[in-house]
Design a protein around this nucleic acid. Structure first.
Lengths: 67, 67
DNA sequence: ATAAAATGTAAAGTAAACTTGTCTTTTTGA
DNA sequence: TCAAAAAGACAAGTTTACTTTACATTTTAT
């Protein structure tokens, strides 16, 4: 699974810490998700998508070999 | 967070066990997600959405008080 | 009404998400 | 070029997703 959180942040010039604060999670959580270290819950994914006025499916993508 | 997995299953006449098998998770995992006992990972949500030819955002919704 | 299938529930264990704290490395900007 | 800000990384601890097993309840079909 890939995600474009870093790109979405860059578009809006928002830091990991700012995103984290807005979502009420730790900066490390955002960092770890961004670099693919772990997979967020669907609840957090929905919040991330909403924050970026986007969708979960737009930000998180299955890779070819997945499913 | 709410989800419409039960409805999507009903549309296609698929049991929890069949869905679980297709997604390589246990039946209890599907059951627990359906009744809101726990929140799936984004990876599993993407697989569920794909199985139903739908989207995560269509199947999983934030409730009004969330975020 | 009865059997079989499907669903709900619960407990114990494992895996992984997430937190907090700390430190290093990279990037940014004056 | 230098300092500050941002990002990457690591470890230990907590919480929660998920598994397996097992059993109870509900639904479906005959």
């Amino acid at each position: 699974m890939t995600n474009s959180i870093k790109v979405e942040r860059a578009k809006r010039n928002i830091t990991q810490a700012q995103l984290a604060e807005n979502l009420s999670v730790s900066r490390q959580t955002i960092n770890s998700i961004e670099i693919g270290k772990f997979i967020p819950s669907t609840l957090l994914a929905l919040k991330i998508a909403k924050f970026f006025n986007s969708t979960v499916d737009e930000i998180f993508k299955l890779e070819d070999n997945e499913f």
